[in-house]
Structure formats: structure tokens, C-alpha cells
């Protein structure tokens, strides 16, 4: 296998990853810059992190974003998992084509359209724009991503396990919680994390559907970026990146351990 990995392959991977990571690395490096100019190095300093924690507007926005993220990701995970089950298990029901269309279309739908249409819905039904409407909007577009992630796991799921449980007399709901759920749990967890990061990340949909008092962090960062690049924003971005990176790394390590454990169990079962 090693012989087929040519120098061209290695070069393109190294260059590709340099392209992907260099801007992020530079952003992090310059958040520790003493100078107010973002592009000129003036010595190491953590003063922008200190001033960040005194910026009340930014702290409020962080709190709003975290709450919206947790609530919307949780609801979206439940709805997205149900949608994934519907897509893989119920191949025949009225309106299935429409349903799968509504699950897949939001994945590529330009955010400006999603944002505008949801705002007009909220106005039409008389909901005041704010925390609640942003959360509803985020649930709607993130649940489709959850559905796709969970669905890919369900497709490769060995149905004979469920069959066995039900043959032994377990009702469908119990079968789901004792057999199906533990197997698809890694996909559900990564679905939740994906939904949370998408919510954390969203500027466009939030700008349309949010109201006074519910400014999210991306909206705050965006309004400051428009005024110019500052090390303080670099510092805020660095913290966001660190939070997400730590979460992803912990999740992938946990995932790997579970996978190894599962393989061991399977081998033990086959031997026994």
C-alpha cells in the first residue's frame, strides 16, 4: 500500500492542509499580538483576552448563543433522528417524496432564502422576533443535517438484532431504546454536535429571525468586523475555535474507544 502513495500524493495533501489551516493558525497567533494592528507583530500579550471579558455586549451575545445552541441542537437531534428513522424504515407512505425533499433541500438552500422565509412566517403568525424565533429557525435547518448523519448510520445497521428482540417479545418502543438507540448513539451524538456548531456559527438566518435583546455572537462579531479587524475579535474567535476543537477531539477519542470496545465484543461473541 505504501508504494502507491506517490510523492505527488503527499505533496498535494501537505499543500492542501497548509491551505486549510494556515489562515486559522495566523488568526490565533495574531490574537496574542501586543500591537493593535492585526498584521504587524508587536510582541506577545494576552491583553485582548482580558479586554474581551470586560466587553459586556460580547459576553451577553455569547450567553445568548450558547443557550440557543444547546436548546436548538437538542430539539433538532430528536426531530432529526425521527426524520432519519422515517427515511430509512418507512419506504412507503403518502408524501414520502415530499418528505425526503424537505429533508435534503435545506442542506444546500442558500441561507438568505431560509432566513427571509422563516422571518416572514414569524411575522405572519404574529410571533415577536427574539430568542424564541432564532431557536425555532435553528432547529429547522439543523435537524436536516442531524437526519443525514443519523440516516447514514441506520442504513448500515443490522436489522436482525431488532428482529431478534421483537421475536423474544420486546415491544417496538422498548426495542428501539434497548437495541437501536445504543447502536446509533455515536451518530446521534455527532449529529447533536454538528447541530450545535451550525447554530453557533450561523450569521445569516439569525440576523433575519432575531430581534432586540437576542443578538447572537456571530451577529456581534459581524457588526464589529464591518468596522475593521481588531485583535479583540481574533481573541474571541480563538476561544470559539478552542471550544469547538476540544469538543470534537474529545468526541472522536470517545468514539474510537467505543468502536474498539464494540469490535472486541463482536470478536468475543463470535468466538463464544
Amino acid at each position: 500500500m505504501n508504494g502507491t502513495w506517490s510523492r505527488f500524493n503527499i505533496t498535494s495533501i501537505v499543500l492542501g492542509f497548509a491551505f486549510l489551516y494556515l489562515p486559522i493558525v495566523l488568526l490565533i497567533v495574531f490574537s496574542f499580538n501586543e500591537s493593535k494592528l492585526v498584521t504587524v507583530w508587536g510582541g506577545f500579550s494576552t491583553k485582548w483576552y482580558v479586554s474581551l471579558f470586560h466587553n459586556q455586549g460580547l459576553m451577553d451575545a455569547t450567553w445568548v448563543t450558547a443557550r440557543v445552541g444547546v436548546i436548538s441542537a437538542t430539539v433538532a437531534t430528536v426531530l432529526g433522528t425521527l426524520a432519519a428513522i422515517t427515511l430509512t424504515r418507512y419506504t412507503r407512505f403518502k408524501g414520502r417524496v415530499l418528505f425526503s425533499g424537505m429533508v435534503f433541500a435545506p442542506l444546500v438552500m442558500p441561507e438568505v432564502i431560509t432566513g427571509l422565509s422563516l422571518l416572514l412566517l414569524f411575522v405572519a403568525v404574529g410571533l415577536d422576533r427574539g430568542f424564541f424565533t432564532v431557536t425555532l429557525a435553528h432547529i429547522t435547518f439543523t435537524m436536516c443535517f442531524v437526519a443525514v448523519v443519523v440516516q447514514s448510520r441506520l442504513v448500515s445497521f443490522d436489522r436482525s438484532l431488532e428482529e431478534a428482540a421483537m421475536d423474544l417479545g420486546a415491544p417496538p418502543v422498548k426495542t428501539f431504546f434497548q437495541i437501536t438507540l445504543p447502536v446509533i448513539l455515536p451518530a446521534i451524538i455527532s449529529g447533536w454536535m454538528l447541530a450545535f456548531t451550525l447554530s453557533l456559527d450561523d450569521l445569516v438566518v439569525a440576523s433575519f429571525t432575531s430581534g432586540p435583546g437576542a443578538t447572537t455572537l456571530p451577529m456581534k462579531i459581524y457588526s464589529q468586523v464591518r468596522l475593521g479587524v481588531t485583535p479583540e475579535i481574533n481573541a474571541a474567535c480563538t476561544i470559539l475555535i478552542a471550544v469547538v476543537a476540544i469538543g470534537v477531539i474529545i468526541a472522536s477519542i470517545a468514539n474510537k474507544r467505543r468502536e474498539v470496545q464494540r469490535q472486541r465484543d463482536e470478536q468475543a461473541a463470535q468466538r463464544g
Partner: peptide
């Protein structure tokens, strides 16, 4: 990188 904010990655290019 896909997990890190889209807005941040675009912002990084301004500098």
C-alpha cells in the same frame, strides 16, 4: 476546519 465558524474562517482572510 468545517467545525470552526464559517464567519471566522472568512474573517481570517481579511487579515
Amino acid at each position: 476546519p468545517f467545525w470552526t465558524s464559517f464567519l471566522i474562517r472568512v474573517y481570517a482572510w481579511i487579515g
